[in-house]
Simulated scan of single mutants.
Amino acid sequence: MKNYSQFDTEDFVQDPYFRKWVLGKLPPGDSFWPTWQSAHPGRQEQLEEARSLVVALQPDDRPADPDEVRLAVQDIMNDLDDRRRPFPLLRIAAGLLLLAGLGWWVWTALLPPGSREEVNRSALPRKIQLADGTRVTLSPNSRLKISEHYGQKKREVSLTGEAFFDVVRNPEKPFLVYAGNLVTKVLGTSFTIRATDDRVSVAVRTGKVTVYRTEKKPGSALSEEMILLPNQQAVMEKASLVKTLVEEPVLLESPVERFAETPVNEVFHRLEKAYGIRILFEEDQLKDCNFTATFTRESLFDKLSFVCETIQARYEVVDGQIVIDGAKCR
């Protein structure tokens, strides 16, 4: 067994067993690397750096012609502008080329400084930290492009696939995500974007998010604009942009568990506060209705269904809010 505790980043990248783990090619029952990672928390940063390189370069195990590799690396080094700081990963990439042959890295190395594309071809989510501290969890088969000038005046990225963003707050430099025909603009919050060829959705976890179309209406600085709050989402499908609720709203405060002959108006107010979702109903219409129940792990929609069934009412999601329709209680 190799002594992985003595490995540096380059050693991990060149190790076939490590590469197979990162790329999801190990048998399902092989838990060596997760166990090793847990036992060596001080090596986390090094492992993440090695993981990023393996995923980006996607090396295979075919031998390359040494002379071809040597000439290619030399050409890249000669092409680098003398004013540009040498690429810190050049030595590692050259080692990978010796293992994997010429490939995607040759194109990547010639990108302008600061401009890059992160691709997750593995079967597991991949965590990425941007220059300002913003954290992105990139889902499998997803792609994130980071602007060359990220963080200078604006913070801009573009997404294909799915990612969860935890954005560091900076009111002076908005964070923009371009996905399909939709732009998501935030100052600092957390949210998930799913972008496919025919559908884009933005679901908010915390904070406030603004979304709008990339195409603008004539005479307007921005196209149709929509403000999203926690547990709300915008869905753009077939050129239609609508606001609704996420499929499974999460609790923002302590769970609502017990009600004993509690006025229904209070029940709705407590649910509204717990989930951060506005619940609209006629106060006078339901003032004489009471509700008794104990909730455990039911979803918000299950709770609403139970309450409405008890008082002979119904609910509907309209424009990211919940509307209750019911008759007077007697």
Rank of each mutant, 00 (worst) to 15 (best):
V264A: 02
P249D: 00
V168C: 02
N231C: 06
N141A: 14
T196M: 05
R199H: 10
A123S: 13
V264H: 03
R258P: 01
R169E: 15
L124A: 13
D132C: 02
G161S: 09
E247I: 12
D132L: 03
E225F: 03
T244G: 12
A195L: 00
K217C: 02
K208F: 07
I146N: 07
E248L: 08
R205Y: 11
S147V: 06
R194D: 09
R155T: 04
E257D: 11
V200N: 02
L251V: 10
P174I: 00
E172P: 00
T206Q: 05
E248A: 09
V250Q: 14
V183K: 10
S223D: 11
P125G: 05
H149F: 14
S158A: 14
S139Q: 15
D132E: 01
V157G: 11
E148Y: 10
L228Y: 08
P255S: 14
R126L: 13
A123D: 15
R143G: 08
Y150I: 10
E162I: 02
D132I: 00
V200G: 02
A179D: 05
P174E: 01
A163S: 13
Q152C: 07
A163F: 11
E261P: 03
R135F: 08
R194E: 12
R199N: 04
V209T: 00
R169Q: 11
V211C: 04
E148S: 14
S142N: 06
R135T: 14
P263Q: 00
V168P: 00
I227C: 06
A163K: 04
G161T: 03
T184V: 10
S142F: 09
L229S: 13
A163R: 03
R213Q: 12
Y150E: 06
H149R: 15
E156L: 09
K238A: 13
F259M: 04
V157C: 09
R155N: 06
E156F: 04
A239F: 10
S240R: 15
F165P: 03
F175R: 02
K217D: 15
R199S: 03
R205M: 09
P140E: 01
V183C: 10
K217M: 14
P218S: 05
N141T: 11
P230D: 08
S220N: 11
L229Y: 15
Q232H: 08
L252Q: 13
P140L: 04
R143A: 07
A163N: 08
Y212T: 07
I227N: 13
V242I: 15
R143L: 15
E162R: 07
R169P: 04
Q233G: 07
E257R: 12
G161F: 07
L245S: 04
E215C: 00
G180C: 08
K153N: 14
G180P: 11
L144W: 11
